[in-house]
Amino acid sequence: MRTEALANLPQLRQQHPAVFRRLTWGGVLAMLVVLAGIGLLALAVWRLELVPLRFIAGLGQLAHFITLMFPPDPGPHLHLILRGIGETLAIAFLGTLGAAIIALPVALMAARNTTIHWLMRFASRRVLDGIRGIDALIWALIWVSVVGLGPFAGVLAILVSDIGTFGKVFSEALEAADRKPQEGILSAGGNGLARIRLGVLPQVLPVIAGQVLYFFESNVRSSAIIGIVGAGGIGLHLTEMIRTLEWQAVSFIILLILVLVAVIDVISGRLRAAMAG
């Protein structure tokens, strides 16, 4: 079989030149993409000074810190840390809920099938894009300058930055709504509002509720860090402990965050399954 094929090689090559081409268009393209990727990486290494030597030196330091982290121990700060975790949870809860309530009407304006005018849709989309372009941490910075230090600024930061996310996600869900029930309502003489209330929302609300639950978990993680700029929650204490090199307390806080997120993940998974079922 092998000898036969090799004997026929010139003839095969003539019949199927494409198979024997070492450089195909797809191959060249793939190579160019890879080369561009490596080039960008080289640029990053040069610009950002990602020096291996520094990396290795730092790893030693890091390993040292990690050995100091065990066992996790809150030390004298247990009360403070628990209060911080409570604040974090409260910030995430209020922020998510508030954002969902405000984002729903905005999303109705931003969705093609429920907006009142295309200009309205265009304007609300741009506003949502703008809000989403700014990280929650920057919003926290802004709100701290407005209402002062403390968890209230954190609530507002999570709330505003989530309006952007929810507005986009909700409007996509609205646009994905099945047209058939809507046509049924219009054909029975319903007006536009009836179409949205009876034809669109019943389909979409469960989807939206699921998404809100899903984002609650990610918001807990966000609200755990906005304390870095003084907007309340556990982040403030975490920064303090890291700055003062109290590694056991640091690992205790990280552990608490992990547990909190895992618990919320389980609960929200149950709730979402219950809603779907």
Partner: peptide, 11 residues
């Protein structure tokens, strides 16, 4: 390798 392509194509 070219030889392997030839074998595969013959098959």
């Amino acid at each position: 390798p070219q030889a392997d392509r030839a074998i595969a194509l013959s098959a």
